[in-house]
Design a protein around this nucleic acid. Structure first.
Length: 715
DNA sequence: GACCTGCTGCGGGCTG
């Protein structure tokens, strides 16, 4: 054992001896030394299953005096399931030390919560929404419990960075800091943090850039990668792909990521059918957000506790984060991931033991998806992770926090509330005048009410805050529950065709719809023999520009990529040939423009948000286009001269873009649906959040200013 | 072309 071990307290050293660990992991060694000798914030970055939780808790438990009054350590997790997993580990770590460990989330015991309120001490494991609820409903107790905090540990911190939920958490951290006379330190844990901008996004997250240091272990496992190509001609997955997938997975423990809930059902049901025909194992499951929680927990339990039996789980990002399902032999991705970060998380699920490599198979059903998969794989090997999208002016989250603050402690003046929000580091880039304008709007719309000079909740504000839905900042759609003889299986969206659809797949089984109860939103089903995927309606994802640029680079180089078999490489060769007609010596600044007799095709090879913005600018210029974001392709039925004439001035509306977005929002109010609280903002600020979150004005301007179109006539 | 996440307080009824 090394020097770090000797720095730990004796009970912790005993824990390590009892566990018979031969040595500390790299991230643990460095974290122990740093955390024990300073009060900085630290972000611990190292791959899945490398002992990050212990890297944080071994030194914290050594350092903190748990006999002091109040809760000493707060562990914050994005998932309840993760809290339940970590509870067991943290409790085991703490048992020699007589430290209370309490789970605090919507499904944990009320009696234990009550006990903690009476005797605040030790470690609390909690979700951001539960902290929010405490500030709203137990404002006095929050001070009583959390005003002597020493450490806040944030697990899977990357899942918060650059999101609305992350802004909410930042605001809650800032509010917690306000009730602590001495400042607490923050420890963030993650396997995937971008270092493109020198870690600025994660450092900013803690509210103190200077005090936040990065501890990173870049070592990674050897990954066996295998690309396979099966062209899809219909909506359904090609039969040959399914057969190949069956043979590949039948003797293994496999996680299969087909990118959507509907496809997960298709994969699980169809593989199971093949298995039944050939008498293979039939441990085929689907795991996604529309599968009932109990069914999902059963699948997780099965995966974790069946050492002998093989299984395949077709899943969405539900199995991407650190929920403990044990080790799997292989990870299979069907068509490209939307991000490198996601690819890394998925790879991390296989070969978790030290001596195992990770096995990854990437299937593609069309050439553009294959190209994107190769681009992601290449970028992964270059160490690229897309930086989180930064949202400096979250007016909607600030409005939500203003309601939370006034509910928790009414009677503040406008001036006092403005000061609180301005000093909250989640909102420090929002101007004071803007804050005052939004508070006044809230008073006008009865969200807040002014009694003499003191603010309380208004009638509309009461309605919103006193609802169960207030504590989270994300929206969810209402679905119909699917029930078989009293047991809930999962849920599906209602559509008018549903009653005429014969049968649906759900939870890896096939069901016949018997009865739809419109009032209580329930669907009764019985087992059936054949059917179709359920259709969940989603909106497209946002791909980072670097992935699309990499796709362009792959088309204009002559690398052979020796990990590709002939079938895959033939696809790339074909695409290279198609694009070879454009002479593009400068890939940074040039893009192909194909001129046909009746139409024009523009290939931007850039990110989704820039593409959305260009589409909007084309609309404003009077050019109707249809955008296929997968190919970064704009299809326009217009003449070359008309297009080029308009293209010269395409960026001119950007100077007064607010006016145009305002008009767009009036005709399409649903564009704001991504924001749960945006509808309560003054219109001016609704336009601003659309501008910041849906479009990407600055980067589009920069892109259009540098890009030169290279023409070629269609043969 | 998407995917994911979480949740109070109160009162009534039931069990042992």
């Amino acid at each position: 054992m090394n020097n770090a071990y000797n720095l730990l307290s004796e009970p912790i050293r005993k824990y390590i001896r009892d566990k018979r660990w031969e040595q500390l992991r790299a991230i643990q060694t460095v974290a122990i030394e740093k955390i024990l000798t300073s009060d900085n914030n630290y972000i611990l970055i190292s791959r899945t299953a490398s002992g990050k939780t212990e890297a944080a808790f071994l030194p914290i438990l050594s350092k903190v005096d748990f006999y002091e009054p109040g809760v000493q350590v707060l562990y914050i997790s994005p998932l309840i399931a993760l809290i339940n997993d970590q509870f067991n580990r943290v409790e085991e770590l703490s048992k020699n030390l007589d430290i209370t460990v309490t789970k605090w989330h919507g499904e944990s015991s009320r009696a234990l919560k009550e006990h903690l309120i009476q005797n605040p001490a030790g470690i609390v494991l909690i979700t951001p929404e539960s902290i929010e609820a405490m500030f709203v409903n137990k404002a006095y107790q929050v001070r009583h419990m959390f005003s002597n905090l020493k450490y806040v540990v944030i697990d899977e911190i990357h899942s918060f960075i650059g999101t609305d939920r992350g802004k909410q958490l930042q605001s809650l951290l800032s509010r917690l800091q306000d009730i602590n006379t001495k400042s607490f330190s923050i420890i963030g844990l993650s396997a995937t943090v971008s270092e493109e901008n020198k870690f600025i996004e994660v450092k900013e997250f803690t509210g103190n850039i200077e005090k936040t240091k990065i501890l990173i272990d870049r070592s990674h496992k050897i990954i066996q990668v295998d690309f396979r190509y099966f062209e899809g001609e219909t909506e359904s997955l090609p039969l040959d792909l399914l057969k190949d997938l069956y043979v590949e997975t039948k003797d293994n423990k496999a996680l299969i990521f087909p990118n959507s809930r509907g496809r997960s059902e298709e994969v699980a049901v169809k593989l199971k059918k093949i298995a039944q025909k050939v008498n293979g194992h039939i441990n085929y499951f689907s795991h996604h957000s529309s599968i009932d929680r109990e069914v999902r927990e059963y699948i997780e339990f099965f995966a974790k506790n069946n050492a002998r039996q093989n299984f395949s789980i077709a899943c969405t990002s539900t199995l991407e984060l650190g929920i403990d399902i044990g080790t799997v032999d292989e990870v299979i991705q069907i068509d490209a991931t939307f991000s490198i970060a996601s690819l890394i998380q998925r790879i991390g699920r296989s070969g978790r033991k030290d001596d195992e490599s990770s096995n990854l198979i990437l299937y593609a059903t069309n050439s553009w998806s294959l190209l994107q998969s190769i681009a992601c794989w290449e970028l992964y090997n270059e160490g690229f992770i897309e930086p989180a999208f930064m949202n400096d002016r979250p007016y909607d989250i600030m409005l939500h926090q203003a309601l939370s603050i006034i509910k928790g402690s009414p009677g503040k003046t406008v001036k006092a509330l403005t000061k609180l929000l301005k000093e909250n580091f989640a909102f420090n880039k929002i101007d004071q005048e803007e804050i005052i304008e939004i508070i006044n709007h809230m008073i006008e719309t009865d969200l807040l009410e002014k009694l003499q000079q003191e603010l309380i909740l208004g009638l509309e504000g009461e309605k919103i805050v006193n609802s169960r839905d207030f504590y989270s900042v994300f929206t969810t759609e209402p679905y119909f529950k699917v029930i078989h003889s009293g047991n809930v299986i999962g849920e599906i969206p209602y559509s008018t065709e549903l009653s005429t659809i014969e049968n649906i797949f759900l939870a890896a089984r096939i069901w016949n719809i018997q009865y739809i109860d419109m009032k209580s939103m329930k669907i009764d089903v019985v087992p059936a023999k054949d059917g179709n995927n359920p259709v969940y309606h989603g909106v497209g994802g946002n791909i980072h520009p670097r992935i699309k640029e990499k796709m362009l680079e792959i088309l204009y180089c002559d690398l052979k990529f020796d990990y590709l078999n002939n079938i895959c490489f033939d696809q790339i060769r074909e695409m290279r040939k198609d694009f070879s007609y454009f002479n593009l010596p400068n890939l940074k600044n040039e893009r192909p423009l194909l001129i046909g007799d009746l139409h024009i095709l523009l290939y931007t090879f850039t990110g989704s948000r820039i593409n959305h913005t260009i589409k909007f600018l084309l609309d404003l210029a009077g050019i109707t286009s249809s955008l296929d974001d997968r190919k970064s392709e704009f299809y326009m039925e217009t003449s070359k001269s008309f297009f080029l004439e308009k293209w010269k001035d395409i960026t001119s509306p950007l100077t007064e873009i607010d006016k145009y977005i305002s008009k767009l929002l009036k005709s399409k109010p649903f564009l704001l649906n991504f924001s749960k609280w945006g509808e309560h903002l003054p219109e001016k600020y609704q336009v601003k959040i659309l501008k910041d979150k849906y479009f990407d004005i600055d980067n589009t301007q920069e892109f259009l200013n540098k890009i030169v179109l290279v023409e070629n006539d269609e043969k």
